[in-house]
Design a protein around this nucleic acid. Structure first.
Length: 434
DNA sequence: TCTGGGGTCCTAGGACCC
DNA sequence: TCTGGGGTCCTAGGACCC
């Protein structure tokens, strides 16, 4: 493996959600901007100006208002618009793939690239082309990092982001550069070392990635487990992670905090049913089926003044399914078994597990198969909703979701600063001022 | 005032078996 | 009667990622 010249790249969008908002609202350029989480809870993406002001990841909208805006620092807050970001992500990835075909999409704003076998000059050229073309065709600024392992490529990417001189591209291509980079990289900034581990390591005097690589493998394995050892190897230049085929997901979760607390079982049922519908759609979109579904509901554990309750129910399907009707029905049954009166519920969710390819579903001989009938209903739901918009055709148990966004239901999200679906909804297409 | 959502993987510990 | 030791399976919880 090592005789082949294996080289990894990682492309990462800068402040992705903020950058998406700016593409369609250029007035946000140069300003402190934050994108808020669901329910306008806390900041999840910040512009450079917002970071410079000292707004942290996870700062609540309330604190942004009180600590910054009210004190005379203007900050623009946007509700998150995942439909828009998802669509922009697809565009970014397709431009990337037109430059380098061999990629693995890792998250909404990030992809690994296989540069193996290319010369240094070829990689330089491709990487610069990625940065330039993605910006030109989508409006999104990105950085590319390159190295001999995925963890080193991530480190290079970090340098490309943090130092302007790189112009969005950094390549750790020699052992001298690797050591120099690792000495500058604080331990908490290493991919794979989170808050918890970095606290433990710092307490032992291990402050940089370089310090970490100077420990013995035995010590690392003993104290950080196998994952820590992998990171250790990767930083030392021994590749342990590889670019994988985009594997189908092993579980699918759909959960939301509610806009307002919900006491009522009917309302909870509407919310859970909607989660179940989304989950079934996701299953069908990736041509898979689930063997089981877990429903959970919880009160708000931040509220010490209220009685707390949390419970889950897992139901195994007689045979793996991706049918909206079946999944909704079983979720309702699950909810019936765990619902308790007298609590104010803050959040609920549906988790589909035991996911297998659709074409591997074992027909259970003891159950009268309704497979074909269900398939027809699902095809109808998918085709109508794809053509006319989400939830245009829905089940009665989903409630009044045709007016999704009107916040008619208490469980729906609060999104007071929502941008429009510029790219995906003809009715909200961008308006040009002339 | 309110503290997101969606994933993966590993480990420790209990239950059970011989 | 005693109280070892190994194995498997399952689950809850913890850690990480974006």
């Amino acid at each position: 493996m090592s005789e082949k010249n294996v080289i990894f790249g990682v492309m990462d969008c800068n402040n992705f959600f903020v950058s998406c908002e700016r593409v369609f609202n250029p007035a946000l350029e140069g300003k402190a901007v934050v994108v808020l989480s669901n329910n306008d809870g806390c900041s999840v993406s910040r512009s450079k100006e917002a970071k410079d002001l000292g707004i942290k990841m996870g700062t609540t909208a309330f604190n942004v208002q009180r600590e910054f805006i009210d004190k005379g620092h203007p900050v623009e807050m946007c509700s998150s618009n995942y439909v828009l970001y998802g669509d922009m992500s697809r565009r970014v990835m397709s431009v990337l793939q037109s430059v380098v075909p061999d990629i693995e999409i890792y998250s909404i704003d990030e992809a690994f690239i296989d540069f193996s076998g290319m010369s240094k000059e070829q990689i330089d050229e491709k990487a610069k082309e990625i940065v330039c073309k993605v910006r030109k065709y989508t409006g999104i600024p990105v950085c590319v990092g390159v190295g001999h392992t995925m963890t080193l490529a991530k480190a290079a990417n970090r340098f490309a982001k943090n130092f302007k001189g790189y112009n969005g591209y950094c390549h750790i291509d020699s052992d001298e550069k690797r050591i120099k980079a690792l000495k500058l990289l604080e331990i908490g900034g290493v991919w794979g070392i989170g808050r918890r581990l970095s606290k433990i390591l710092t307490a032992r005097g291990i402050k940089t990635a370089y310090d970490f690589t100077k420990q013995s493998a035995y010590w690392v394995k003993k104290n950080l487990g196998v994952n820590g050892l992998r990171t250790y190897d990767e930083l030392s230049g021994r590749a342990d992670f590889g670019i994988e085929e985009n594997a189908a997901k092993q579980s699918i979760t759909i959960s939301r905090s509610f806009g307002e607390m919900v006491k009522d079982k009917e309302q909870l049922g509407v919310a859970i049913s909607n989660f179940a519908v989304s989950g079934a759609e996701k299953l069908r979109a990736q041509h898979s089926a689930a063997e089981s579904v877990t429903v959970y509901i919880t009160t708000n554990f931040f509220r010490n003044d209220l009685p707390q309750y949390y419970n889950t129910a897992t139901i195994e399907f007689p045979e793996a399914t991706n049918s909206t009707v079946e999944i909704v029905r079983e979720c309702k049954r699950g909810l019936d078994s765990i619902f308790r009166d007298g609590f104010k519920y803050k959040k609920g969710g549906v988790i589909l597990g035991g996911i297998i390819p659709e074409n591997q579903v074992q027909q259970n001989l003891f159950v009268e198969s309704s497979y074909d009938k269900m398939k027809n209903i699902n095809n109808l739901l998918d085709s109508v909703n794809h053509k006319f918009g989400r939830n245009k055709l829905h089940l009665a148990v989903q409630g009044n979701t045709a007016t999704f966004g009107d916040a008619a239901e208490k469980w729906q999200m609060r999104r007071e600063h929502l941008s429009k679906n510029y790219t995906t909804n003809l009715n909200e297409i961008i308006t040009l001022k002339v």
